[in-house]
Nucleic acid binder design. Sequence first.
DNA 1: CGCATCCCCTGCCTGC
DNA 2: TGCAGGCAGGGGATGC
Length: 293
Amino acid sequence: MPELPEVETVRRGLAPVMEGARFDKVLAHRGDLRWPLPKDFVKRLEGRTVTGLGRRAKYLLADLSSGDVLVMHLGMSGSFRVSRDGGDATPGGYYHERSKALAHDHVVFQMSSGATVSFNDPRRFGSMKLVPRGKLDDEPLLRALGPEPLGNAFDATMLAQACAGKKTSLKAALLDQTIVAGLGNIYVCEALNRSLLSPKRQASTLAVRSGAPHERTVRLVDAIKTVLNEAIAAGGSSLRDHKRTDGSLGDFQHNFRVYDREGQPCPTPGCKGTIKRIVQNGRSTFFCPVCQK
DNA sequence: CGCATCCCCTGCCTGC
DNA sequence: TGCAGGCAGGGGATGC
């Protein structure tokens, strides 16, 4: 589920029940996520207070009173669910029988705010890691990340420079988290359609020439920022599973112009093209071969 | 080094 | 109906 808008939606859902709250109890039902949870995971959380919940790219970062930062990633299928009664997160095993949807609750936080926060991840590509705040700058997961796409550092000049000399496709370059951090398969497809750029274009064609970034690069950056902001405002996109922490669905999937719309007419005004699906680097790309050049 | 491919894992949908 | 195969929002490891 998670690209930047979905992770930001999760952050906004968790912040009210986690910020300023203490971990009263932490249940690690399964430690074999993307990486094994550290042996002292529970001990380093229980009794600590969350002083702030932030986001970097697709990572959630919970600052703890201990000086640790809890770094969390949702992978492909991770989600957080907040319940106030705590009943559906009670340990002891019955919840597996009670509801299939709860069968992959690998980590559960019982917060002093009265909320129970459950991390559910069927595929277990998600991860949790504890990093001392002072070492966050050296954290391998974070240190190579490119700029936030919604930040001021991400502009046409910067993107053009980052793509200079890149032989790979523009699609692959935008998915590269070291170039810009937070885009995924959906929003790359959407931004390329909005900016009328082909995903097959060589990334280096965005490069700076004679001092100024090409107009197409300005268009692309604008499209990226716009689509991300619209998606965040809509509460993210819900495809196969639920999105917001209260269990409700995001809305932005209704606004997809090309993603998962193979065979449908291109939404670009005046364009008579049909959305096509191709595979790039092993992943689906949806685009209009007529107007995206 | 840059870049493409493979792989981790479970679940759902399709087509035979 | 059952089952095999393909596919899924990510990203680290490997190998050319």
